[in-house]
Amino acid sequence: MTIIVTDGLTKTYGGGVNALADLTVAVDAGVIGLVGANGAGKSTFIKIMLGLVPPSGGTVRVFDLDPVTETDQVRARVGYMPENDCLPGDVSASEFVTHLGRMSGLPKTAARERASEALRHVGLYEERYRQIGGYSTGMKQRVKLAQALVHDPDLLLLDEPTNGLDPAGRDAMLALIHRIGNEFGISVVVCSHLLGEVERICDSLIAIEGGRLLRADRISSMTEASDILAVEVSDGTDDLAAALTGMGLQVTRDGRMLLVPMESDSSYDRILRAVADLDLNLHRLDQRRHRVAELFTKKETADV
């Protein structure tokens, strides 16, 4: 099922800043990573989907609803977790999440029940009556997630959910998001500038840079097998490279590995023969898989 469709989506802020430029993408349900460096337009994209800022051009549809004209219906089905700290310190998590549940239109008792449930799911059941001011950063992030979850949305928009977390907290948060996407049946858009962590939990990935779409695809197709063979030998790499070049193969060197384009199945045999002729110890000969990071390294080096 396709949940988000944009066509030529453009957002220009006053002063001519292009936050989004001609973004056309169709997103399927599941856990979706929205990756890009700071200022790439991730937050603007989220705000447009929530109907907080109108697009300057193009269209966007969330659950086949227009966020500009059908704002209420969209927001009722979407939960938003902002990037920044947004919690008052002097109320309990239970009270705060209940209040925001009511602000999403839940009746009083339902809001209280759902708040307890949401806090239980994010792992704060025991501590829910304590004041938020005394919580750790990790616990606060969980409260933020709980308030996005309280009204049972069909889509969660999480803006940098792992911000400020230590490695253990980061893993726990990612596991939680993975669980929400796969067990709760709620689609999740995870914004991040850290490709590595998003890659672990996402079904598909949208990469944007400078407001433009870099690539949008399923993770599986991004990591599919390539037509490159990786060869690694204990030593004598140079000799092997020379031998393979002599056989008319295009060899590129990558650290201790040699990368050889696979022209046909016989490439395996030819490489093996070359290795045997040189009497080298073969450590590895396999078909290389793309890593997601490769898709960005050419253009985006700073944050990935």
């Binding site: 907080l52 979407v78 902002p82 920044n84 999403s104």
Partner: peptide, 17 residues
């Protein structure tokens, strides 16, 4: 002021309110 201070407003205004 409390809602401004603790930055809670985005949570309100991302809802139908």
């Amino acid at each position: 002021s409390r809602d401004l201070r603790s930055n809670t407003l985005p949570l309100y205004f991302s809802r139908p309110l």
